[in-house]
Design a binder for these strands. Structure first.
Length: 579
DNA sequence: GCCGTTTTCGGCCCGACTGTTTTCAGTCG
């Protein structure tokens, strides 16, 4: 997807300009443009074709022409030029926490640092202390920062952050000086990966709370510690930032600390134009500095005549404008989910029995749960041949006859073969309640080939969703290249839903593609891809992707009750709308 | 580099903490 590449280049250009001590607002313009492009609901090429690039927020004539140049040539000459004028090690050094453009440049100019390894050597041999403004403490911090970079490239999966936050919140909740406590930052916005865990506390005695926080047993080291703010690293190498504010500032602080940065900047700019100022303590009139709001987020948004903006939407990708016009979507919640669409039993590569699955699903208040073991050709995962599949169908039917309170649907995660055919005959497929189709082979094929395999599968009247459509594994395997415009069009036409796989390593579709799918009128199915007991709890992460994709109940297939769901399946089987 | 019911030029979000300083620059979120 070229959007990501363009964003990456703008981000790099900002880094280089920063090292060159360019106008900081110019640097910010590049960063802001990068975020705009990254969060775009569609391919920049489409917008460029309409000549509408410069209508995007933060993109003017100059950046629009740079994007056009990239779309035409695959390069931006200004970037190529900038790259030549700066040593790569400078940019590497800026990845180290605590080192910004100024320090990086100083180290490069005065010490001729050649690489991060070289930097480590120079810090260890005390070559850094003695440079203007730097002493032993800076050397220690550089070494600490380098160790942090080596251990972990930075971002962790959402569930790791969730667990770390839960532990710390549990540890502080009962402290007598803690009044409110909440996760904030990208964790509260439920981004798919998180760099550090942010936690907000209200208290009348910040010092005591910070003292308790830095003394928690799971903390390995403390990197900053003040009266209202502290940063630590846990024994699991998770960075945690804690911030303490007085109770009357809870809303303002929660908004500030939740971000995103871009959302906050946009809100603050709006405030400034009205003669107001927003900071983490409240909203103030500039004249006289009188506080007029801040206790709750609701109070702040309504001051600007906006409804409450859900944290998942706060990315400055149109939510402020939508809120001002009263056009924010009503997002689905995890309580709206009526069933889980993707569960493996021990018949293939899961560990649960049918009755265990039924009990777990019932406990969650579901009306239905779909058993979806692998089909024959996925031998490595114990895929079921047609005979075993027929037996499993019978087993589930018998199970339902004697079990009450939930319906177990029988389905399958059927392989899409190389030619786009399904791995089971229609004779088998028609006996199933619901069919998931998935690609498990040929990830390196061309965009055209992979796209056409999926589209052909969608045209099978028994196929109801496409599982983990892009095949990505976060941090391990890139998404394969698909023509999403074509996929969305085919999904809509054939009444096939696209899965949001809720497994934290997958989260596939992504939030951005979920939003594009929704805008294209495509239904989504949120599914946990459960193999073991606790994985049914991952539903929250899939729902969060849908929320970040602006989805409401009506966009999500498993918000339907059982009857409506069966009707949806039957409509496709009747085949009126498929070529 | 962007942007405009205060402006086409002159602004551009705002504050905390650290390490090095005796009043602040750099970095971060």
């Amino acid at each position: 997807m070229s959007n990501l590449r363009i964003a990456e280049i703008f981000e790099k250009m900002a880094d280089i300009l920063e090292v060159q001590d360019a106008n900081p607002f110019r640097v910010r313009a590049y960063r802001r443009a990068a975020r705009t492009i990254e969060g775009l609901g569609r391919e920049a090429a489409g917008i460029a074709a309409e000549g509408a690039l410069s209508e995007l927020s933060g993109i003017g004539e100059d950046l629009a022409s740079k994007i056009n140049e990239f779309l035409a040539t695959g390069k931006i000459s200004a970037y190529e030029g900038l790259k030549k004028r700066v040593k790569p090690v400078l940019l590497d050094m800026m990845d180290i926490p605590g080192i910004g453009p100024k320090t990086a440049k100083l180290l490069s100019d005065k010490l001729k640092v050649k690489s991060l390894d070289d930097l480590e050597k120079k810090a260890k041999t005390h070559k850094i202390a003695g440079l203007p403004g730097l002493k032993e403490k800076t050397e220690e911090n550089i070494l600490k920062g380098l160790r942090f970079l080596k251990k972990d490239s930075g971002r962790m999966p959402i569930d790791t952050a969730f667990t770390a936050a839960a532990g710390i919140i549990a540890g502080l909740k009962r402290h007598p000086e803690v009044i409110d406590i909440s996760p904030a930052g990208s964790l509260r916005r439920m981004k798919e990966t998180v760099r550090d865990v942010d936690i907000l506390v209200t208290s009348k005695n910040g010092g005591k709370v910070i003292e308790a926080f830095t003394g928690l047993p799971e903390i390995a080291s403390v990197s900053a510690r003040g009266e209202t703010k502290s940063s630590v690293v846990t024994k699991d190498n998770v960075r945690v930032d804690l911030r303490v504010v007085p109770p009357e500032s809870y809303g303002a602080a929660l908004m500030y600390f939740t971000g995103s940065k871009e959302h906050n900047i946009a809100m603050r700019e709006m405030a400034r134009k009205k003669g107001l100022k927003i900071n983490e303590y409240g909203v103030f009139r500039k004249r006289g500095n009188r506080k007029i709001a801040g206790k709750s987020e609701d109070e702040i948004y309504s001051l600007f005549k906006m409804p409450y903006v859900e944290p998942e939407l706060r990315e400055n990708t149109g939510e402020i404008d939508a809120a001002l016009r009263g056009r924010l979507p009503r997002l689905l919640s995890v309580d709206d989910i009526r069933g889980d669409f993707h569960i493996h039993t021990k018949a293939s590569d899961g560990v649960l029995s049918i009755s265990e699955i039924a009990a777990l699903a019932k406990k969650r208040g579901y009306e239905y749960a779909l058993i979806s073991d692998h089909s024959a050709s996925l031998k490595i995962a114990g895929g079921l041949g047609e005979k075993r599949m027929l037996r499993q169908i019978e087993t589930v039917r018998r199970f339902n006859a004697r079990y009450t309170g939930i319906e177990i649907l029988i389905g399958s995660e059927v392989d899409i073969l190389d030619n786009g055919d399904m791995d089971y005959s229609d004779e088998i497929l028609k006996k199933l309640d619901f069919v998931i189709a998935a690609i498990h082979s040929g990830f390196k094929q061309t965009k055209e080939k992979l796209t056409s395999r999926i589209i052909k599968a969608m045209h099978n009247r028994y196929v109801n969703t496409i599982a983990h459509p892009s095949g990505r594994l976060i941090g391990q395997r890139d998404a394969y290249d698909l023509d999403y415009e074509k996929i969305f069009a085919a999904a809509k036409k054939t009444k096939t839903a696209l899965e949001i796989n809720a497994c934290p390593e997958r989260l596939d579709l992504t939030d951005i593609n979920a939003r594009r799918a929704r805008e294209a009128g495509v239904k989504l199915g949120i599914a946990t891809d459960t193999h073991t007991k606790h994985q049914m709890d991952n539903m929250i992460y899939g729902v969060s992707v849908a929320r970040r994709g602006w989805c409401g109940k009506k966009d999500v297939l498993n918000c339907l009750g059982l009857k409506e769901l069966k009707r949806f399946v039957q409509e496709k089987r009747n085949g009126k709308n498929i070529d």
